[in-house]
């Protein structure tokens, strides 16, 4: 009954159960944090706007991104992945989401930032629908925990538009 194997097994089972329980509690505690993130994005310049040789529109632009995501950090947060995507509709596609810029925020201190940057990923349409196109810029964040459930949310900012002519 009280052999070495039996005791080792009991100890291991208890340790794993306790650890799993603590992980679950840590993840659950994320639900009680108070979140009030804010963001503001401006288009500073359209650097380039043209139709590629195979017919797709491509834009290069400079963005001014200001955001405060400090309230998303909890003790169970490993990092926050933040990205800005252009989102728009075209006759062919009901939704186009094109990521323009992203960053990994490892600590709370860096979660309040302002950056002026041209798009990191190419902004290419599937087709040539971008002239005069109105689109949303959405700041998405993805909170990656030390353990447990991941969660994501976004702030949609509308009212941006592209020029009527290539340049």
């Amino acid at each position: 009954m009280h052999s070495f194997g039996y005791r080792a097994n009991a100890l291991l089972t208890f340790a794993v159960t306790a650890l799993a329980f603590i992980c679950a509690i840590a993840s659950f505690s994320d639900k009680f944090s108070n979140q009030n993130p804010s963001a503001e994005i401006q288009i500073l310049n359209i650097n380039r706007f043209k139709k590629q040789s195979h017919g797709n529109d491509e834009v290069s632009l400079t963005l001014d991104i200001a955001a405060d995501l400090q309230s998303l950090f909890t003790w169970n947060t490993k990092q926050i992945f933040v990205f800005v995507a252009a989102e728009y509709e075209t006759p062919k596609n009901s939704l186009n989401q094109v990521s323009l810029w992203d960053a990994i925020i490892p600590v709370k201190e860096n979660a309040k930032f302002r950056i002026q940057i041209s798009n990191k990923y190419r902004f290419i349409d599937q087709g040539h629908n971008l002239r005069g196109k109105e689109f949303n810029l959405t700041l998405h964040w993805h909170v990656m925990p030390k353990t447990g459930k991941m969660f994501a949310d976004k702030i949609v900012m509308s009212g941006y538009s592209l020029p009527d002519a290539y340049r």
Binding site: F81, S94, L95, Q97, S99, Y121, H140
Partner: peptide
Amino acid sequence: AGEIVVFNVDGRDIPIVHRAIKVHER
């Protein structure tokens, strides 16, 4: 966009875990 998806590529045995950065929906 932004979701971490696990996908299979034809000709590869092991699935890959990466983030979607562009999405175009018909």
